[in-house]
């Protein structure tokens, strides 16, 4: 029975890890698109660049997450990366909003 519970726990934690990596990637895509726009790319170019890089982010994050065996470290790092990207995206949005709304 304990082996089954262990298997169930492994499956659940693997799924949670994948979802966490995806959410973190989404935030990093948002940040990348804002930074690319700030760096001078047009909106369409910035979004396309960020979306394409997103797959590389997700790939690297998944590999790192499954290579790391310490659960606490997995959680802390992914949460930290998510918070960092969210915070920086918010700050970048404040910077780009005048440019975006002014140009319309």
């Amino acid at each position: 029975m304990s082996a089954r519970i262990q298997t169930f726990k492994t499956i659940l934690s693997s799924l949670a890890l994948c979802v966490a990596c995806y959410w973190t990637t989404e935030q990093w895509i948002a940040l990348t698109s804002c930074l690319a726009y700030l760096a001078g790319l047009s909106r369409a170019n910035a979004v396309m660049l960020a979306a394409m890089l997103g797959f590389v982010y997700l790939w690297l994050l998944l590999l790192w997450a499954f290579a790391e065996h310490r659960v606490r470290r997995q959680c802390m790092t992914l949460a930290g990366l998510w918070l960092l990207a969210t915070g920086l995206t918010w700050a970048a949005t404040l910077m780009i909003t005048p440019a975006l709304t002014g140009s319309r």
Partner: peptide, 24 residues
């Protein structure tokens, strides 16, 4: 594999455009 994913970016990352387009 990577190009196959990138082609369908708008399905896999449907919110990618929001930070730069939702405002306007």
């Amino acid at each position: 594999t990577l190009s196959g994913l990138i082609i369908a970016f708008s399905t896999y990352f449907p919110n990618a455009h929001l930070p730069l387009y939702a405002i306007t």
